[in-house]
């Protein structure tokens, strides 16, 4: 190869690479690193003292969001915790509490049940669960195709047309709130009833709860009653140590709840 040829080829190659490179979007640093603020940030408040475990929220959620009613998957569910005086912890959530808790025996799964005598019980309570719409959602970070994302108001959504059903997000969620939609075959999750909150309506579960155990609010509005509770009262979140910054706040969370 002569020197002349070498220089010519180098020039051609650089040109070709530049052409290809120009076709790929050039990312501006500010769009990569900074988030643009919005004046709404949806948050949720659960009062475990108020919950009676009727499961009306689960039923309403399934019907409102067209989650197949008889499939054992649900966007929200209620867990029952029973602690005995001798230190045992029993927890169950049959069908996600779609039909509530109509018997004192604990459902151990696989058709097995445990009876507990009232005098054995130290404490017992119900804990509703739903998507935490984390400020740092790990489920979004792992999506290889950009099918799950966070909207400017904090709600994490799944694009059903874009999702390839790989299941990474389901594995990544530390709260286990994601599942496969049995009909659409894509990842599915609670989105605070995005269609309702954007019309000024309460999420279906909040509407259905007779006991005010579930509430939704905008943390960026200082006059919002939910914001006032979260900022002024003693609330906690689930699995704080994971650094996901969950945005479902709980009143009366016990250390046994995971």
């Amino acid at each position: 190869m002569t020197r002349r040829e070498f220089l010519k080829n180098t020039l051609r190659l650089t040109g070709a690479l530049a052409m290809a490179g120009s076709a790929i979007e050039i990312l501006k640093p500010d769009s990569v690193f900074s988030a643009r603020p919005s004046d709404v940030r949806w948050v949720f408040l659960v009062d475990t003292y108020k919950c009676v475990g009727c499961g009306m929220c689960v039923r309403a959620c399934k019907l409102e969001n067209e989650v197949p009613y008889d499939a054992n998957v649900t966007r929200t569910w209620v867990e029952r915790y029973v602690l005995t005086k001798d230190g045992r912890l029993l927890a169950d959530s049959p069908k996600g509490a779609r039909d509530g808790f109509i018997s004192p025996r604990i459902d151990l799964g696989m058709g097995e049940y445990r009876e507990i005598r009232p005098e054995e019980i130290e404490k017992a309570f119900f804990v509703p669960k739903l998507c935490n719409q984390c400020e740092n959602p790990p489920c979004v970070q792992v999506c290889p195709v950009g099918a799950t994302y966070q909207a400017s108001d904090g709600v994490v959504l799944v694009d059903r047309k874009w999702c390839i059903g790989c299941g990474y997000c389901i594995m990544a969620c530390p709260y286990g709130v994601r599942f496969f939609h049995p009909v659409y075959k894509v990842a599915e999750k609670c989105n605070f009833c995005y269609h309702r909150i954007n019309k000024g309506l309460k999420p279906a579960c909040v509407l259905a709860c007779p006991f005010d155990a579930r509430r939704i609010g905008n943390i960026k509005d200082p006059d919002d009653p939910v914001t006032k509770v979260i900022t002024k009262e003693r609330v906690s979140v689930l699995k704080d140590e994971y650094g996901t910054k969950p945005q479902v706040y709980y009143i009366g969370l016990s250390k046994e709840v995971r």
Binding site: L27, S31, V32, F33, S34, A35, R36, S38, N136, P137, V140, Q141, G146, A147, T148, Y149, Q150, A151, S152, L157, D159, K161, W162
Partner: peptide
């Protein structure tokens, strides 16, 4: 890339 940046806001 939309409001929540590249890490969380990359979507349709």
């Amino acid at each position: 890339i939309h409001e929540r940046g590249y890490m969380y806001g990359w979507h349709r």
